[in-house]
Amino acid sequence: MITSIFNKSKPINFIIVLFITVLAFLTARTDLIIEPVTGTFVFKQIIVFLICVLTILVFHFIISKNSLTQSNSYEILLFSLFLLTLEQTTINTNILISNLFVLLGLRKIMSLRSQKNIKSKFFDAALCIAIASLLYFWAILFFIAIPFSLIFYSDNNIRHWIIPFIGVATVFSIAVGVSVVAYDDFYEIFKSSRSFSYDFSPYNSTKFLVGITMLFSFGLWSSIFYLQNIKRKKKGLRASFKIVIIAAIIAFVLVLLAPQKNGSEFLFLFAPLAIIITNYIEIVEDKWFKEIFLSVLILIPFLLLML
């Protein structure tokens, strides 16, 4: 049974996840190879693939460190399946790196529950999200998660509200300095598009429609139970679970605003969605329903490869 394989964290699970990630990565590049493959091209693709793997490892670390799921491998399985569902998410290097920094920023935010080194964590979180926004402007929306964390932790220290803005200002100042030295221009480094678009016609294909429908239908259904279940979590962990739902909402808004809707923007949604759906799978008591639920999530990405 599928659930018995991924119900525990085992080395074989990481091998399966790696295989799915490789498949998603290679599938996305079938249309990119229009010229003879050179050593430089291969080297660049290896680097991009390693960023994908690093993202999954960081994601798994965040979950295990903050007890966002039980000791299983559902969340990384789902993340890799989402990559296979919308393999375009592995193409845009800027978005891949931006998403990695967003995850690092969320990690710092969630670690606030220890109430240790609060100032440095706020600064680091803002720093990571600001760097992410340099690579993909709309990633700056995740900055909203920081004041929400202050509310969740009932932090009324005025200095803690100011520190995140200092983190953003630090990145801006360094970026301007690098831009002047490298390009002899103050704002040349800020190339990421700040425009937005509500033209969803690029999604008008069977593959996109099925994939997006799967993400939102399973995600929305699981979110209902996820929100109900937060009250049952330990008091010290509730803020982290709330941050996950905030991150999911922000990622959804980011998808709506994305200036180029080519599928890569959905990457920001994968991590919070994988956590939310994993939490739902964990509370399902009917073993057969759980098997069917997970089987559909696995089958759809592979069926989409045939389209």
Rank of each mutant, 00 (worst) to 15 (best):
194 R>Y: 03
144 I>R: 07
106 L>F: 03
107 R>L: 08
48 V>C: 12
114 S>A: 09
18 L>N: 05
218 F>T: 02
87 E>D: 13
213 T>K: 08
6 F>E: 10
288 W>A: 13
16 I>M: 00
295 S>I: 04
286 D>N: 15
26 L>G: 01
222 S>M: 04
283 I>H: 10
261 K>L: 01
173 S>L: 12
106 L>G: 05
93 T>A: 14
290 K>S: 07
298 I>S: 09
186 F>L: 15
216 F>A: 10
257 L>Y: 05
72 N>W: 06
179 S>I: 06
264 S>I: 03
172 F>Y: 13
124 D>G: 08
52 C>K: 06
38 T>S: 15
108 K>E: 14
300 I>P: 06
90 T>F: 01
69 T>P: 03
215 L>A: 09
205 S>C: 08
191 K>P: 00
21 T>S: 15
22 V>L: 14
226 Y>R: 10
39 G>W: 05
8 K>W: 03
158 I>G: 04
3 T>N: 14
16 I>F: 02
215 L>F: 14
67 S>Q: 15
55 T>F: 07
59 F>S: 11
20 I>K: 04
159 R>S: 11
172 F>I: 11
156 N>M: 09
204 N>R: 06
284 V>W: 04
27 T>Y: 11
290 K>M: 02
25 F>W: 08
218 F>V: 06
81 L>F: 03
135 L>E: 07
9 S>K: 10
60 H>L: 03
279 N>T: 07
127 L>E: 12
123 F>L: 15
266 F>W: 06
159 R>K: 12
288 W>N: 13
84 L>F: 01
97 I>D: 10
47 I>E: 09
93 T>H: 11
23 L>W: 02
166 I>Y: 02
73 S>I: 12
62 I>G: 02
163 I>T: 14
261 K>F: 01
34 I>P: 01
226 Y>M: 04
233 K>H: 14
27 T>W: 12
300 I>L: 08
89 T>C: 10
103 L>Y: 10
191 K>Q: 12
36 P>G: 08
252 F>V: 09
51 I>S: 09
254 L>H: 06
261 K>A: 00
302 F>T: 05
199 D>Y: 00
20 I>F: 12
197 S>C: 01
70 Q>R: 13
293 F>Q: 01
287 K>M: 09
211 G>A: 09
306 M>S: 09
92 N>H: 13
28 A>V: 12
174 I>R: 01
299 L>V: 15
157 N>T: 07
241 F>Y: 15
251 A>W: 00
119 K>C: 04
145 A>V: 15
10 K>P: 01
158 I>N: 08
230 I>T: 13
221 W>A: 13
128 C>S: 14
187 Y>N: 03
228 Q>K: 15
34 I>G: 01
23 L>P: 00
43 F>Y: 14
32 L>W: 12
56 I>W: 05
246 I>N: 05
225 F>K: 11
160 H>A: 01
